[in-house]
Design a protein around this nucleic acid. Structure first.
Lengths: 200, 200
DNA sequence: CGGAAAATAGCACGATCGTTCGTGCATTTC
DNA sequence: GAAATGCACGAACGATCGTGCTATTTTCCG
């Protein structure tokens, strides 16, 4: 009340909405997200929520972007504090593990990838852009490890990025269906084997 | 023709419906499947389609089973004609490759796994049963290859099954987003490396 | 060919979907 | 203090959702 609720109100409310929307989308996917359900979850009216985005698609895009930001700030950014090369690469994988543990009940980015890979539209484009952007970051970290001599000089960057990504897909998949502990063990063992075969 | 030709119409119509439902579910997932849309696609009335299943959930379960049957008959069964051990295991992977090529626009079994891994209900149970059943088959083929000396005797069966599955997840993922050719190359290279490190 | 049985269509229901519109209440600006 | 702006609400829209009921049509068997 005393504190000035300037145009700040809009931004904070929008973030509150996106918080709830992200949580709902983790369970039901971006396609399962409904404005009515979201409004009830937030404690607002349908039209109040709707006004913040203008359309359902814009809401979905905003939730996708929320997921991207959270992933980047939890997985990529902390790893950038590690020295280039293998340490940073292993930090990325370790942070990604933590992400998977917290998202075993559903990851918006992954479900979005499987929801929109077969259609076209703004959401498809957003997913592809997000996924290829992350793959680029992964390849960049791998390339640095190769240049610094941490990985074999004949390492195929895109190939290793694919295999890392595949293992994390396996982790997400098995963790969601069979439990995280068993899946984590398998994934960890696979990574050890992977590092060993590419390390110098 | 023999004796059980009483309600022949029912079975054939049901299969026609499931054909269309399977195609629709490949694009929109089992959650995106609607009875009205399915009826329009088949060319029947909503109630006519509905009567064949009794509920939407039963329809979704039937579609899931359709997917399972097609996967088994296209991937597993042809491979059983190959001799036990590594030949059969490689045949499974090869058939799985073909499956992924034909399903790059969306695989019902995989999308169902990500749609229902975070909730509970009959569909969740069905997905888990289907996935663990397939994993068992995979492990059986691996175990035979170990027993026959085609794979190293210290091979951890569950571990190798996980890695194979993870690579196929990577293939599906990348094929859907970035195209099958590039994804197929990466996956093939990863498999060669995988065989080499476990082979005797 | 006729009659029983099965399969499909037609219609209606309550609920929910995304979206639009007008309005009231704060807060800011003049 | 008056005017303007920002934000959320409530009501209502046409559409579609899944699911019942009741006819009507089609299929099958004697």
């Amino acid at each position: 009340m005393t504190t000035a609720t300037q145009p700040r109100k809009r931004a904070t409310t929008r973030e509150t909405i996106l918080d709830h929307a992200y949580a709902l989308a983790r369970r039901d996917g971006l396609e399962g997200l409904s404005i009515g359900g979201l409004a009830a979850d937030v404690g607002m009216s349908k039209s109040g929520v709707f006004a913040h985005f203008g359309s359902r698609e814009e809401l979905q895009l905003a939730v996708l972007d929320t997921g991207r930001n959270r992933f980047v700030s939890q997985v990529l950014m902390p790893a950038l504090k590690q020295p280039r090369g293998l340490p940073r690469l292993r930090a990325i994988v370790a942070n990604w593990f933590a992400w998977a543990r917290e998202h075993q009940s559903g990851c918006v980015l992954l479900s979005a990838a499987s929801e929109y890979d077969g259609r076209d539209g703004a959401l498809h484009d957003g997913v592809v852009r997000q996924q290829s952007g992350w793959r680029d970051e992964l390849q960049k970290a791998i390339a640095q490890a190769v240049e610094l001599g941490h990985l074999r000089s004949d390492t195929e960057v895109a190939q290793l990025a694919f295999e890392i990504y595949a293992l994390m897909l396996g982790l997400h998949h098995d963790a969601g269906l069979f439990g995280f502990d068993e899946a984590g063990q398998c994934t960890r063992a696979a990574f050890e084997r992977l590092w060993r075969s590419w390390q110098t």
